[in-house]
Design a protein around this nucleic acid. Structure first.
Lengths: 206, 206
DNA sequence: GATGTAAGTAAGTAGCCACTTGCATACATC
DNA sequence: GATGTATGCAAGTGGCTACTTACTTACATC
C-alpha cells in the first residue's frame, strides 16, 4: 500500500536473490510494482536504497530468550536451538549475500552479524547459569562452548540445503542432537536416550 | 608463463574478490597481464572460463589424514582442526562467493562443498575408531558430533574476520578448544588442564 | 474550480559489459 | 626467406545499467 515500504520490501527480496550487483533498479521496481523513476525520487540512488532496506530489515532481530532459571537444560536448549536455526534459515540467502560482499561493501554487514552476536552472548550467559547451579564441570570454557554450538546452528542453517548429506537427519531432530552434545561437553548429565525434544518425559537430573 | 593457466589463475583471484558479476573480462585480463581478446580465444566466453577456473581449483583438495590408530586423540584432533581451519580460511572468500551465488549458478558449488564433505566423513570414521577402542560413550551419535565439530571449524574460518568478538581468542588456541569440547561430548576423558595443543605433556588416558 | 502532490510515461545520456572483427607483430620452424 | 602460430591492438556492436529530464495523469484539498 505504502509506496515507500513497498520499494524497501522489494529491495530486500531482490537483494536476497541476486546480491548487490544483480539488484538492478528495474528489477526492484518491477518487484514493487512501481515505476523505476519513483525509486530515484524516494531514495536518490540504488546504493542509498539498498543500504536503507537492509538496515531496516534488521528490525526483525532475533529474540527468543533462554530461561533465567534453568529447569530442564536439554529441553530448553533444544527449543532455543530450533528457534535460532529457523531464524537463520529464513535469513540464509540474505546473510550469504551480505557475507559474500563484505570486501566490497562492508557497510552491509550489520544485518548478518547481529543475530549470531546476540545469540552467542545470550547462550554464554545461560551456560554460566548452569555452571553457577553446579550442573556442569567447573573448568569448562563457556565462550568456546557457546561459539561452538552457535557455529553448528549457523552451519546447519547455511549449509543443509547446499549439501544435505552432511547433516544429521531428519532436520527436525538436529537441534536436539546439537544441544545434547554441547551439554555433555560441559559436563551436564544428559540421559542416554534423550536425543531430541520429542522425549519429553526424560528430564535432566538437577 | 603459460598464458592459459595465467588466465585461469587470474580468474580465480578476481572471482574470489568480486564474484561472478564483478569478474569482468577486462579485470581478469588485467590481472593476467593479457589482452582481453585472448580470453575469448582460449575460452569462448566468460561463463566457460570461470567454470573451468573454479573446477580446476578443486585440485588443491584438502588431504590431511587423521591417524588410522588413534594414540593421543586431543593432540591429533587439535592438529587436524588446525589444518582444516587453515585450509578453509584460505578458501574463505571464494567459498563465500560460491555459496552466495548458488541460487543463480548452482554449477559453481562443487568447490565449496568438497572439503567439508570429505573432512566430515573422515572425522566421522575417526570418531568411530575411538568408539571401537572403547574410549568413548557407546551411545553417541558420531555423525552429529562430526557435523558439529565441522560446523565450528567452518564457522570460525568464515566468520572470525567478519565478527572477531564472537570467537575464542587467540585464534591459534581455538582448534584445541573445539577438539577438547567435542571429545568430552562423546565421553572421551580429557585432562582438565589440556586446553590447547601447546600442552604437549598432557596425554589422554588410553 | 484552482492548486498541490504523488505517481506514471517516454525519452534520452553516458558508461560499462560481453563479445567480435580485422589487422599488425613477433617468433619459431621448415 | 616463407609459413604458421600465438598474441597484441584498435575499433566497434548491441545490450544493459544507473540516473535524468520533461511532460502527463489522477486525486485530494482548499
Amino acid at each position: 500500500m505504502d509506496t515507500r515500504s513497498a520499494i524497501l520490501n522489494a529491495a530486500v527480496t531482490v537483494f536476497s536473490q541476486h546480491g548487490f550487483r544483480g539488484s538492478t533498479t528495474r528489477r526492484i521496481a518491477d518487484a514493487a510494482s512501481v515505476n523505476e523513476v519513483t525509486i530515484f525520487r524516494y531514495f536518490g540512488s540504488k546504493e542509498a536504497l539498498i543500504q536503507e532496506a537492509i538496515k531496516g530489515s534488521e528490525g526483525n532481530a532475533f529474540t527468543s530468550p533462554l530461561p533465567q532459571e534453568p529447569v530442564d537444560p536439554l529441553d530448553e536448549l533444544t527449543k532455543w536451538c530450533s528457534a535460532v536455526i529457523t531464524h537463520l534459515r529464513a535469513r540464509g540467502p540474505m546473510m550469504r549475500k551480505c557475507m559474500s560482499e563484505i570486501e566490497e561493501r562492508p557497510e552491509l554487514m550489520g544485518q548478518a552479524s547481529e543475530t549470531p552476536t546476540r545469540a552467542t552472548s545470550e547462550l554464554c550467559a545461560y551456560l554460566l547459569r548452569l555452571k553457577a547451579m553446579g550442573l556442569t564441570n567447573d573448568d569448562f570454557d563457556e565462550s568456546a562452548a557457546a561459539t561452538m554450538l552457535m557455529g553448528s546452528l549457523f552451519h546447519d542453517a547455511m549449509g543443509r540445503k547446499l549439501m544435505p548429506d552432511l547433516f544429521p537427519k531428519p532436520a527436525a531432530k538436529a537441534p536436539g542432537k546439537y544441544a545434547k552434545l554441547i551439554l555433555r561437553s560441559i559436563g551436564v548429565d544428559v540421559p542416554v536416550t534423550a536425543s531430541s525434544k520429542s522425549d519429553h518425559e526424560q528430564k535432566v537430573a538437577e
